[in-house]
Design a protein around this nucleic acid. Sequence first.
RNA 1: GCCAGUGUAGCUCAAGCGGUAGAGCAUCCGCCUUGUAAGCGGAGGGUUGCCCGUUCGAGUCGGGCCACUGGCUCCA
Length: 637
Amino acid sequence: MPKVSLADGRELEVAEGAAWADVARAAGIQAVAALVDGELRDIRDQAEEGQKVKLLTLTDPEALEALRHTAAHILAQAVRRLFPGTKLAIGPAIADGFYYDFDFPSPITRDDLPRIEEEMARIVSEDLPVERVFLSRAEAEDLLKEEGEAYKLELLSEIPDERISFYRQGEFMDLCRGPHLPSTGLVKHFKLLDLAGAYWRGDATRVMLTRIYGTAFASEEALTEHLKWREEARRRDHRRLGPDLDLFSIHNEAIGAGLILWHPKGARVRHEIETFWKERHFEGGYQLVYTPHIGRARLWQTSGHLDFYREGMYSPMDIEGQEFFLKPMNCPFHIAIYKSKTRSYRELPIRYAELGTVYRYERSGVLHGLLRVRGFTQDDAHIICRPDQVEEEIRKVLNFALDMLREFGFSEFSAHLSTRPAKFVGAPEDWDRATEALRRAVEAEGLGYDVKEGEGAFYGPKIDIDIEDSLRRAWQLTTIQFDFNLPERFDMTYVGEDGRKHRPYMIHRALLGSLERFFGILIEHYGGAFPAWLSPVQAVVLPIAEEQIPYAEEVAGKLRAAGIRAEAWTRGGKTLRYLIREAQLQKIPYMLVCGAREAGAGTAALRLRTGQDLGPQPVEEIISRIRAAISSHSPEL
RNA sequence: GCCAGUGUAGCUCAAGCGGUAGAGCAUCCGCCUUGUAAGCGGAGGGUUGCCCGUUCGAGUCGGGCCACUGGCUCCA
């Protein structure tokens, strides 16, 4: 009789052929799924000798995937009841919920979602047992053919097994790997969220299906919390906050989609970012360069962009009979600077940095506020070094990147190492050296990372860094990429100790990615309430009555003289309540209230954006407090 | 690009079966002289995304275009 060990340390002997459900019964646990040797398994799976199992109850987080997968089936069942003739595609559990792709006989709209939800609730209340049945390949094929399930048939043809699993609940039966909960009655807390188009198998050449997104949780509280989180993310959407805070605008008709106008306040934030960025780069041994927005066709011919990247580039313009292209990347220009004279090994490493504005064609459907645009400024740099310097340079640049991101208030990072793909240029030894340098650097930083085997670009391995924002969403910002292609194409060389020409290594890197995208992420991370050093307006001085206007102006003047971005709000006719509300909505960190008492005493009553009222304080003290907050880059006021 | 939805004043939103566009905020002008998230009154502001059609008459119905939103292999 097989013996298995439970998560609580117990060892159980089970009958030959017993399922985990039987084990759970024997152990007295209300299990809905099983985590067997660390893998989520169906409760109906057979227990085998020596396996370690954690029997999962409905509320175990590990069971969520099964719960959502079952929710997806309930969705499909409801859709089948309401829209006969609908074909099923696939319906997995995903990070935040689940979806199911359908081919409806006629289009449905969002307004149909409540009806579908109601039918789902009915299926839940029917508490249908979910059974697993195994069919032979031939039986499975017959069944799916009979039901006209063309998509499922395609999936079936790719399953290697001869024993095909189906799950059945009531009248509904679906080809599925599982795992699933024991019954539909367990999926009590769910919600349908969105309707979207999705290509069959994600392939743009194939049919467009209708995808219904939803989410499900083990408890009503967890579901409510998730919906609140979605609401908060919506509230923080940079496309909403941008116009509200007068930071930027986009004018599709008048100017063009995906092109950003930075308003004075947004521009001020950008200026602070850029200034800080440049200072740090000078300290880090980078040299700042500026390069043009366009270049002749032959440049892009040499770089290979015209052969491999043309669909991402804007059409050429004709200047005196020569073709010029808007730059999609800065590298060829930096290389030209490098090549403007003979380089010695003594000069290396050379690090060229540029806030370089590039233009790339993006399909209209993928444009998204500041996050996906057609014209953007990369915080770009190219490091050109000798092979013996690679290790050190990578270590430095990674450390540099993380330091910079921390200054902007991000503290959670994860890294992805992408290695050599099947099709590549350059020598495998170079690839290995570069890949190892990247690996050692992330390990030295103590970053968690995963390896994306074979997912590097054809020209070199790379490491990407994701940050996590205040809503626990991941964004890919930093990328550090080797290039074994361009040095070759442009014949970059340096003269070595031996007096001979050698090929340098080149590394592309962007830390923030692009200023537009980074700004969008910052807006959402802070919900528009920037830390003092980034706030476009750092302090407002609010007079209570007209008599205090001169005093308010004097105070604002003192703040400005101390390097603080301060305004006196002296337009008449507004109550203090009004002005405070106005300042709160604009998320201005410091409000200095000046009434008769303060004007007499040379003080101001300090209110923080947090709502905290600190009462009257000498203006000098307020100034040093604000200056300290600014220079610390801290979000604390 | 594709699927579904949406497009009315600077912003948020109204206008039962087609009958000739309205409110709050914002702006401007007054009054009020204000103590920690909206004081009061008045005025101006719209080619209802664009084009074509149906109709005596279109924000509303039909067609085409444009733009935006949610998405478009987290693999039975």
